[in-house]
Design a protein around this nucleic acid. Structure first.
Length: 330
DNA sequence: AAGTTCTCCAACCGCACGACG
DNA sequence: TCGTCGTGCGGTTGGAGAACT
């Protein structure tokens, strides 16, 4: 049994809002508030609209202090930084940009910002696609040139002309350890607090966390990955992907993870703690979701292969990195 | 000038979650 | 504990206007 529709679809108006409808809704909410019930609101004020539609109209358009268009460079950077770090959590991103709505940011990202970032990389992408084609033609990992296939613990600096240059960090140490972080609420919470310190509400944390975990089938697969990485050959070079993302995050102008003076290299202490700690829990605090989004661990058969899924666009991520690095060096 | 394609964005849709009885 | 309801979210769509051929 499906759930009942939120409103009577037949008697509900759809499509663009008329100025009179806007005025009616705005006047009522400004005087009485929403009354805590969006579903009942349109009937109260005589609007033939779905409650959800009223809510959306208010939040995205009628609410006071809403800004439309004209995103600044600073806002671009914030959006990029947060997108890289938490993905398409538009509501959370919007919370960092006063006056912006999640819908606005989502549209801006999908229609403009992504293209803006990718714009300079078209040529690279074309070359890369040729590289992809070449990779797809290869029937097994052993047919892929060694410059592209990298084992988990081997040199990930190997450069192939078809792959964009990515920031490089040492191999992830956790590959040789028992994973034990997935259900740890505090690790995720810690990261979110690090991400600007504005994600302290339990609601957000839980929501983001559930999303992260659902996208990160790490449990048993990680053990397979470990075996695989020790077995070389099967580990296709995507190990630098999360690294690049982390670097982007760290290098971004927004400084989501504040860089502290006197630290070894370019990594802030919080990140170093995660990355270099011998404690597997600390190593993975906050990094797991990056892997979850970007890599797929295929454990079919006796071997495991880590591949970059379709959702990952090397060019895109590389571009993001470039944009952020360039803004960082201004 | 007309037809076609592209871009942008407001709005819709369906799902997940929490509150509540 | 379970079912229902309202809310919030992210993905997608549709249409108006701009750009291109």
């Amino acid at each position: 049994m499906g759930r009942a529709p939120c409103c009577d679809k037949a008697n509900v108006k759809k499509g663009p809002w008329a100025p009179e409808e806007d005025a009616t809704l705005k006047a009522y909410i400004e005087e009485h508030g929403t009354g805590g019930n969006w579903i009942a609101l349109p009937q109260k004020i005589g609007l033939k609209r779905c409650g959800k539609s009223c809510r959306l109209r208010w939040l995205n358009y009628l609410r006071p202090n809403i800004k439309h268009g004209g995103f600044s460079e600073e806002e671009d950077r914030i959006i990029c930084s947060l997108y890289v770090s938490i993905g398409s959590r538009w509501s959370i991103i919007a919370a960092q940009l006063p006056g912006r709505t999640d819908n606005d940011i989502k549209n801006y990202w999908n229609t403009r910002l992504k293209k803006k970032i990718l714009g300079k990389q078209r040529k690279d992408l074309i070359y890369r696609r040729k590289g992809d084609l070449f990779m797809k033609k290869a029937r097994s990992p052993s047919e892929i040139p060694s410059s592209i296939v990298v084992s988990g613990n081997e040199n990930i600096n190997s450069q192939d002309p078809y792959l964009p240059e990515l920031p490089v960090m040492p191999p992830m140490p956790y590959l040789n350890q028992e994973p034990c972080f997935v259900s740890d609420h505090t690790s995720v919470r810690k990261l979110l607090i690090k991400l600007g310190g504005r994600f302290s509400s339990d609601d957000n944390v839980n929501q983001v966390q559930s999303n992260m975990v659902s996208h990160f089938p790490i449990d048993n697969n990680l053990n397979d990955l470990q075996a695989s990485s020790q077995n070389d050959q099967n580990f296709i070079a995507c190990s630098s992907t999360p690294v690049s993302s982390s670097s982007m995050l760290l290098n971004s102008h927004y400084n989501i993870l504040p860089i502290q003076e006197g630290q070894n290299g370019t990594f802030p202490s919080a990140f170093e703690e995660m990355y270099y700690s011998t404690n597997p829990q600390k190593q993975l605090d906050g990094l797991e979701f990056l892997y979850g989004d970007m890599c797929e661990v295929n454990t079919s058969g006796s071997s495991s292969v880590v591949t970059c899924g379709d959702s990952i666009d090397w060019g895109e991520m590389s571009s993001l990195s470039n944009v952020m690095n360039s803004t960082n060096h201004r």
